[in-house]
Design a protein around this nucleic acid. Structure first.
Lengths: 210, 210
DNA sequence: ACAAAGAATGAATAGTGATTCACTTATTAA
DNA sequence: TTAATAAGTGAATCACTATTCATTCTTTGT
């Protein structure tokens, strides 16, 4: 008897997995899912293509994991903004702002997460995550209804509308075509955009202009 | 000199083009863009695959044309609803209702037009058409602002939010997974859905509950 | 040093489906 | 009838990448 997996090896393998994951993440960040081929990822990570398949079942699986990781960050940020003190409306406004501003700050990745055409398994994750956002919003809306800052309504439905409104509003500004040419990406130019999205959304919820 | 294209031939060719187009349309209607391969379309139309390329430059071109044709109908319906008598809010409400109800009545095609992952050229059409919807809404919003039924706001931005909110709200109910199982597609079940979408949207515009 | 087990390699393979093109058939005008 | 031209055909080709696997290289325990 001879080889048996040792601690050192386990570490090395987990390092390798992490490195592959990170490099794939970078590839997506740079050029979207579209041109993040396994060959590129392997090259970036300094391993053979076959090696990737020792750590991930398939390309879709790898990319689904990347999608989850990247989107979970955003969901957490939204959840965080919703978890602060203050009434529901204020917290919802902060969350929407947070979401839009972060997206505009990292437009390429945001576009990949929100609007890039992707493989079915990744698309499935996207739908799941849109629901995750909606659930967070939904809870805040219920809070608002209870405390009286938001009039009674279908919280589930309204939350879906929020997600749709903000996503659609960002698709244009985030799209690669847009990104390259003009300087719409400077914070000054973006403020009014964010403002009017938030304005519409809050009014949709509360029936009150701000 | 001999062959020169005659009236009869021109007709026959235009017939053939129409037939291919119609059959492709049917294929998409039945199973979405995904499984509308050229081979299937050719089979359905009773021609060889090569023949299709005499009438259309490429698959993407053919499907882009189908997308345009199908979506233009919907845009026209929305425009129609917005062109009736009454104040801007009433007209916008009618248009949103129209849109949602038509989509829910033909869920497979609607899903393909709104949410199915598609090739880049078709996706480009989709973005264009979302803008087309938005422009119609935008004009109505401007009317509303002018006549005083809608408070002043970024009409362009609000219209984009409308498009996003309604599209997102329909993605779930229209998705193939949803469609097959339950009987959410009976008009009675859909009414509350449509109502709450419209409610959110109108409130987002006017700041008034209805 | 050696054998057992695993990890890494990357060229070759495979799946998919759009597109081509050499050839056949049809239409037209003289 | 015939030559000229075009339309139709569909098996073969091509393009693109994900995935495999026979082989080589490493690690480990005796």
């Amino acid at each position: 008897m001879a080889y048996r997996e040792t601690e050192k090896m386990r570490n090395r393998k987990s390092e390798a997995r992490k490195r592959i994951f990170q490099c794939a993440f970078q590839c997506v960040m740079k050029g979207g899912f579209r041109n993040a081929q396994i060959t590129h990822v392997a090259q970036a990570a300094g391993v053979a293509t076959g090696t990737i398949y020792r750590y991930f079942d398939s390309k879709e699986e790898l990319f689904a994991e990347i999608f989850r990781s990247a989107t979970q960050r955003e969901v957490d940020k939204v959840a965080e903004a919703l978890a602060t003190e203050g009434n529901a409306v204020t917290r919802l406004e902060a969350a929407l702002r947070q979401f839009a501003e972060r997206a505009l700050r990292g437009p390429t990745m945001a576009w990949s997460l929100i609007a890039e055409p992707v493989d079915p398994k990744v698309e499935a994750e996207r739908i799941l995550y849109r629901q995750a956002y909606a659930r967070h919003f939904e809870q805040a809306i219920r809070d608002g209804i209870e405390e009286g800052s938001i009039p009674p309504q279908e919280a589930r439905q309204s939350s879906t509308c929020l997600v749709g409104a903000i996503a659609e509003s960002l698709v244009g500004p985030l799209s690669p075509a847009q990104a390259e040419s003009d300087q719409t990406n400077s914070p000054e130019h973006q403020q009014p955009l964010v403002d009017s999205i938030v304005c519409f959304c809050i009014q949709g919820l509360t029936g009150t202009r701000r």
